[in-house]
């Protein structure tokens, strides 16, 4: 009996001697018109700080809230806040990289379609043509826009937010965390057990996921027609507007997922690639050599026909679920 007790006491001591593993902290935040879920291993105070950051950014980046920073910029020409201005310039870079397939100045057209309010309508050809006069990232000089032009940072806001939160977490010494900002996922570090985070990619044709990618210090961002759409006279109109035509993009893709360390870039590129279609998007990916100087990212495309294309960096990291055969997955290579 005494020996057993001594053994037990020793066991307890051995356990307490282990360095304390940080506890899992998680929270759900309703912001930027979506649900955000944050989880990290470490100090719970960092989550509260993250929530404050999100609330500040939501206000500064909102184009729909009459008290929002971008709303003020659009309607009264008020100067953008520091974060909004930084994001504006980042978005312009992405527009240049993609030839304007992602363009923050497309906002007047999006408004006309009613995607911001839910009062959906199909604008006429002339109306769209008139609105397109004001659209185009090349028409901006610095922060000056032509009369009547308006911007919306929505296509990059969640990605940018995930970058800022990830920076905050790193500054606070967090080495493991995961955030899902309404479908924009960012994985910080590895799971506490040392394995990479497993991020599912939504199947555009059903409510499940079509496969998973291993993620470590990268954002995983998907753009798809299924996210927001409406039906009029048997035609489905989705929310990703092609800045060239002013109409929902028709490029043969059902969804695009971009994976890379720069969440803002991934967010903007997923929209741009959806507009561009498989071939032109793949060209841009190929032109960005993986040399460290060019943007670093990988892409997963799902075509309207249900074929999956991945860029070579995802080989080994992407695994399709049982609904898809590995044989259905085609790999795009640079060589």
């Amino acid at each position: 009996m005494r020996r057993a007790a001594a053994l037990c006491a020793l066991l307890c001591l051995a356990l307490t001697a282990c360095s304390p593993a940080p506890a899992k902290q998680s929270s759900t935040i309703f912001a930027m018109d979506t649900v955000m879920e944050l989880q990290l291993y470490g100090d719970g105070a960092v989550l509260a700080e993250s929530t404050r950051l999100i609330t500040e950014l939501e206000k500064e980046l909102s184009a729909t809230d009459p008290e929002g920073g971008v709303y003020a910029f659009n309607h009264t020409g008020t100067e953008l806040g520091k974060s909004a201005a930084e994001l504006f310039l980042r978005a312009m870079d992405i527009s240049r990289l993609t030839g304007g397939a992602m363009d923050i100045t497309v906002y007047p057209v999006v408004l006309a379609w009613g995607f911001t309010t839910g009062q959906y309508r199909v604008p006429g050809d002339e109306e769209i043509a008139a609105l397109l006069e004001k659209v185009g990232y090349t028409k901006a000089s610095g922060f000056d826009l032509p009369q009547g032009a308006m911007i919306d940072l929505g296509a990059v806001a969640k990605g940018y937010t995930s970058d800022l939160i990830a920076d905050l977490w790193r500054q606070r010494g967090i080495s493991s965390g995961l955030m899902n900002l309404g479908g924009n996922v960012y994985a910080l570090g590895k799971k506490p057990d040392g394995s990479p985070w497993l991020v599912g990619v939504r199947d555009p044709f059903s409510d499940t996921f079509l496969g998973t990618v291993e993620a470590e210090d990268v954002a995983v961002v998907t753009s798809g027609a299924y996210e927001r759409y409406f039906e009029r006279d048997g035609v489905i109109y989705h929310h990703i507007i092609d800045p060239k035509t002013g109409r929902p993009a028709k490029s043969g893709l059902a969804s695009v997922t971009v994976i890379g360390p720069d969440g803002t870039l991934c967010d903007g590129l997923s929209t741009a690639f959806f507009v561009l279609g498989l071939d032109r998007a793949a060209e841009i990916w190929k032109s960005c050599e993986a040399d460290g100087a060019s943007p670093d990212f990988d892409v997963l495309f799902v075509t309207d026909g249900g074929e999956i294309y991945i860029t070579e960096g995802l080989e080994g990291s992407f695994s399709p679920t049982n609904d898809y055969d590995t044989g259905d997955v085609r790999v795009i290579r640079r060589g």
Binding site: E37, L178, N180, A187, K191, V201, F209, G224, E227
Partner: peptide, 8 residues
């Protein structure tokens, strides 16, 4: 045991 999060 599904994925830790789903993008999209």
């Amino acid at each position: 045991g599904g994925p830790d999060a789903v993008a999209g």
